[in-house]
């Protein structure tokens, strides 16, 4: 191929390589995509939770998409505490008002944003959650205050279907 006889020949080989490469790519994609969540997993995206039995100061943990979701009914003191924190003191500044639409209910993905462990309830230096794996402290709004975790615990999409039922997802 070192001797360039005509352009046509080069074009032919280039075209063959290019078309071949497209085919290889198109063949590899299904092999990769098969590992993505399948149709039956995607269909299970939402869960409804009955919270009528949760009294103030208590947390329940429910399973959503294979992960724990903390649902805490906060006391008035806790709400006051969460709302009094100055944004400047936070590693990942977020207002409690944005995290808990209804201040009484905190619905939050119970997964430490460091490396995915489940933090313990009412532990740590900020009366919120404490992750035993690498020592991250979260406050009563689930915001990171101390330790290696980079961000606050995630708030999933949820809504109150009625006064007693929360639909997550």
């Amino acid at each position: 191929m070192s001797e360039k006889k005509t352009n046509r020949r080069d074009f032919l080989f280039t075209a063959t390589y290019a078309v071949g490469a497209v085919g290889v790519g198109a063949t590899i994609w299904p092999m990769i995509d098969q590992m993505n969540p399948d149709a039956s997993v995607k269909a299970l995206a939402s869960t409804e939770v009955d919270v009528s039995a949760v009294s103030p100061g208590k947390t329940i943990t429910v399973l959503w998409r294979g992960k724990p979701v903390f649902i805490r009914r906060r006391t008035q003191d806790e709400i006051a505490e969460a709302r009094s924190v100055k944004l400047g003191d936070l590693k990942h500044p977020e207002k409690d008002e944005d995290r808990a639409k209804d201040p009484e209910w905190l619905v939050m993905l119970g997964v430490c944003t460091h490396l995915g462990c489940v933090p313990l309830d009412q532990k740590g230096e900020y009366n919120g959650w404490f992750c035993p794996c690498h020592g991250s402290h979260y406050d009563i709004s689930g915001r990171i205050r101390k330790g290696p975790a980079p961000t606050n615990m995630e708030i999933p999409k949820y809504e109150f279907v009625n006064a007693n039922t929360i639909k997550i997802g």
């Binding site: 299904p30 092999m31 995509d33 098969q34 993505n36 399948d38 149709a39 039956s40």
Partner: peptide, 13 residues
């Protein structure tokens, strides 16, 4: 059947 129906491109594979 799960592969044939739900897995992405499962039927093809």
């Amino acid at each position: 059947e799960h592969i044939m129906r739900d897995v992405n491109y499962g039927w093809l594979i």
